[in-house]
Amino acid sequence: MTMDYKPAIHFNDVSYSIEDNQILRSITGSFPEGKITTLVGPSGAGKTTLLKLCNGLLSPQKGEIFIKGKKISDFEPVELRRKVGMALQSAPMIGGTVYENLALPMELSGDKLGKEEAESLLQDVGLEAKFLERKITDLSGGQRQKVSIARTLVNKPEILLLDEITSSLARTSLKEVEELIALINRKFGTTIIWITHNLQQALDIGDYTWVMMDGEVVETGESGLLRAPVNDRVKSFVQGGAE
């Protein structure tokens, strides 16, 4: 990866396994600060696992991860997870209403989320204010994803990890969310790492791209690499998997 930028996150020979099952192998590389890096690869490649390592939901058995130059193991877990926010792949919800879900990050630290603030968050992700009192169980898959994104933004993370956040969104909503993330990136200089299975999206929104396969990072560079990959496996992945 180009070294023109300071890394927001740096992986140094990181391996992760669950018991005998090796899931990530010797990952080395950086995610540049203030940029959008897209993360693509076939199902089961280890993309979600890699993001969970970045916000401390998992720790590697081998190697070291640095967040803005500081060893990840030197962070307090709670501090790390607020600084490096993650929108999880399945957009999980606690029960109750949309408001209760949006207020969750504040509640966990003993604070309250104002109603107006909650409404403006909803607006940011393209949901009307009336959704605030909706029951979570009454939401569509796409609406859940939007609530999940809004909730991740409540902590105002410096680094934002997004795991397939647009997979259930219709075309227009997808564009709205892409624009929102690009805006957050430009306005606050937030570093974005975005897993997507939509290669066109990876190309459109990414400054940089990592391609992962079988627990390894096989190609990294400016997102344009997806148009002309060097690695043969990446080539066939890009041809076969493009949507």
Partner: peptide, 20 residues
């Protein structure tokens, strides 16, 4: 499990994550 993971990922403690 996913709720537990959600609460931890947002900076909650294990106790908060398993409280319910």
């Amino acid at each position: 499990q996913d709720e537990t993971e959600l609460i931890l990922s947002l900076g909650g403690t294990p106790k908060q994550a398993i409280h319910r």
